Amino acid sequence: MSTPARPFVSYHLWSLVAPARGQEHWHCQMRRGFIKARQHEPEVKALLAQATPPQRIGILAQKGVYEFHHHLQWLTQSDGVEKVAQSLKLSNFTFQVKQRVIQILQKYQKSPLLLGKSIIQLTPGDEGFPKPILIEQANYCFRLYAAMDCVFIESDSTLHILDFKTGKSAFDKRQALVYLLAARYLYPGKSAVASFYNLEVCQKSELITINNHELASLEFELANVANKHQLDLQKYAARSSNFSQIFPPNPGNHCRFCPFNSICEFSTYNPAKSHSMPIIRNS
């Protein structure tokens, strides 16, 4: 008999289980169900494979930073942006994606945030799942996934974990906290800080820190998130017909931006229909 898989958690899963502050109104658990419980179904798998323009821009922008620092001479060459654009094969993308990425590359070449930093990790953004960190305590055990964009060492030997952003989305402090917890295990004994940097508007966040007591509380909260999700997956495996009870929907105007609106029976917006009528639910 096979051993059941240990519960797992990541910032992405945490954000699917619990909304960020101020986003409770349009948070939908059914989205988590599609992404985490039904991801192998052909229709769901096809939708998950379709990156949106904002997603493509984010991935390409991060890869552009990686290419600049992999070929440092491009940061000072007049055709450096063009060379990075060629390495990213930007000509294969839509005009909107291409233009926004070009603008991001131009801004980064003009003000390269990481130039001169003691970088110990810089990822291209398309490397897939990182190796999980096994966290074991007396009363819980789970796998933590934390894909960090960049880690460098400050002059005072502090580890600085940097996450790149694009677009207009607000920074979610929870993502930085997950990285700081991961750093506790990946770089034991090292002092660490985390921050965000929006490559499109050249905006830095405040430095985010966490003490040992807060780390312990965070770890316990993530264990609860991991266990709740694991239990939901087990319930779905036992009775898939209970999908909407296990992962309850929250239909509304936000359905327009959900990648699953074309296959979700609860969606108030279906792009395949010329007229999308709001669903009336019994109170």
Rank of each mutant, 00 (worst) to 15 (best):
K131W: 07
S244L: 10
A183H: 02
Y140L: 05
H229D: 15
S267M: 01
F34G: 01
A49P: 02
W26D: 10
R32Y: 08
V201G: 03
P251C: 11
L16K: 14
I135M: 01
F8H: 12
G22I: 07
I279G: 00
S15T: 11
C255L: 07
Q96D: 13
K190N: 07
Q23Y: 14
L218V: 03
D172Y: 06
G22S: 06
Q234T: 06
D163R: 02
V65P: 03
G22F: 07
I104K: 07
Q175E: 11
G22C: 07
C141T: 13
S276M: 06
K173T: 11
I104V: 15
D126W: 10
A170Q: 12
C258K: 01
I208S: 03
V17R: 14
A192W: 02
A49Q: 10
L122R: 09
T76Y: 08
H70Q: 13
A49W: 09
C258V: 03
V17P: 07
N227G: 07
D149H: 13
T268P: 00
S262W: 01
A216L: 13
Y140P: 00
S274K: 04
D163C: 03
N211D: 15
S267L: 03
Q86I: 07
P249N: 07
E127L: 10
Y185H: 13
Y66S: 02
T94I: 02
K173M: 09
F142E: 01
L162M: 11
Q55D: 08
R38Y: 07
G128F: 08
K98T: 13
E82P: 05
Q39H: 15
F247R: 07
H69C: 09
A192K: 00
E82K: 11
C28M: 00
A37K: 08
P4N: 04
Q29K: 15
L233A: 01
N242Q: 11
P53E: 04
V193N: 02
S244I: 11
V178P: 00
T76L: 00
C28F: 02
D163H: 06
G116M: 06
K110T: 13
K131S: 14
I208D: 00
I279S: 01
N198C: 03
R6Y: 10
A146Y: 03
E206F: 06
L218E: 03
H213A: 14
S91M: 09
N198F: 06
L231G: 00
